[in-house]
């Protein structure tokens, strides 16, 4: 399909939207590695792909939009599996989706505005640093506690999903049959909205935030959480891809395709390895990985750049 240039040991491919030549093996490796990790840990991988692409000098604008496109592919196979098993609540997913689509639209506005004032790259990095380090630390703390408990053979104090908190006193209640839950639509739509914003600004599916929020905040039964969030992610990332393509022209189909193919293959091997590892060890590993990416991005914000000036093509209305 694509013409490769064989010269020496490097095989380069020209990315038409990013407008630069890259080593195809590095992109394939990146896709496979992130796919492997996403299969292993059951995450979408968008939060790893986008920073990696930025580290590899892909313009952040392209990295974010292409990342969202790649997440569509990695979420579809997972959602299909959950749909077959019946662990997907369509109604809950649709309510989440309503918020998600609005959020993604608002997110793309913010994205275009930040780009026009020259603060997009900084904002993406800052958002990643804050989210990755916070979530990394929380996960690490939680998994270490679980590992200590497992060592002492103590049973884990399970938080009952049925317990009520302030979220359950909100009006506009809806009955979600599959989840066996009676819940206000307000927090569900709000959660979808916030994740939608993150999808369009960061190029992530947002599962790594949505899943814990659904379990601990909305008290939705764990068995339907992953499938339902994947269902919502497919549509929000697909929508974001469309809107980014229409407003910023920044989805690179060649880059996305290479990442997708490598990603879905890598994921299959990741799943197999993941099944052999213990849950809390797996979460501790993922926490360390998330922290590492966050710290690497943070360092980039604080060290003095090589050149304080930067040039961008375009000026008015850009």
């Amino acid at each position: 399909m694509f013409c490769f240039a064989l010269s020496g040991s490097t095989v380069t491919i020209y990315l038409p939207i990013a407008e630069l030549s890259v080593n195809i093996f590095i992109i394939l490796g990146m896709g496979a590695a992130v796919g492997f990790l996403s299969g292993m840990f059951g995450v979408g991988g968008g939060f790893l792909i986008t920073p990696l692409l930025i580290f590899y000098n892909i313009p952040p604008v392209v990295a974010v939009a292409t990342g969202a496109n790649q997440v569509v592919a990695s979420s579809v196979s997972g959602a299909i599996t959950h749909f077959r098993r019946g662990t997907l609540d369509m109604k809950l997913g649709t309510v989440l989706l309503v918020g998600g689509l609005v959020g993604a639209t608002v997110g793309v506005w913010i994205f275009s505005w930040l780009r026009s004032i020259g603060q997009l790259d900084l904002f993406i990095s800052l958002l990643y640093v804050v989210l990755l380090t916070t979530i990394g630390l929380l996960m690490l703390q939680e998994s270490l506690r679980a590992m200590r408990k497992a060592k002492l053979n103590q049973p884990l104090p399970l938080k009952r999903p049925g317990q009520h908190n302030w979220v359950h006193r909100l009006p506009l209640k809806m009955r979600f049959k599959k989840s066996r839950i009676y819940l206000s639509a307000i927090p569900v739509v709000t959660l979808g909205f916030l994740i939608g914003i993150l999808t369009s600004i960061m190029g992530v599916g947002g599962g790594f935030i949505m899943v814990p929020a659904m379990i601990y905040l909305l008290r939705i039964p764990t068995n339907v959480v992953v499938g339902t969030s994947l269902f919502q992610i497919i549509f929000v990332t697909a929508y974001t891809t469309m809107v980014q393509a229409a407003t910023n022209y920044s989805v690179d189909i060649v880059l996305a395709f290479i990442l997708m193919v490598a990603g879905v293959i890598g994921a299959q091997y990741g799943v197999r390895v993941g099944q052999k590892l213990r849950g809390e060890q797996l979460r501790a590993l993922l926490a360390l990985l998330v922290l590492a990416v966050g710290i690497r991005l943070a360092v980039g914000l604080f060290i003095r750049p090589q050149d304080l000036y930067s040039v961008a093509v375009g000026g008015i209305g850009y």
Binding site: N69, V72, V76, S77, I80, A238, T241, Q244, F257
Partner: peptide
């Protein structure tokens, strides 16, 4: 954009 989404859907579905 639609083509990008379709390719992603087909890739993900194909893999499954």
């Amino acid at each position: 954009g639609l083509l990008c989404v379709l390719i992603a859907l087909v890739t993900g579905w194909g893999a499954s």
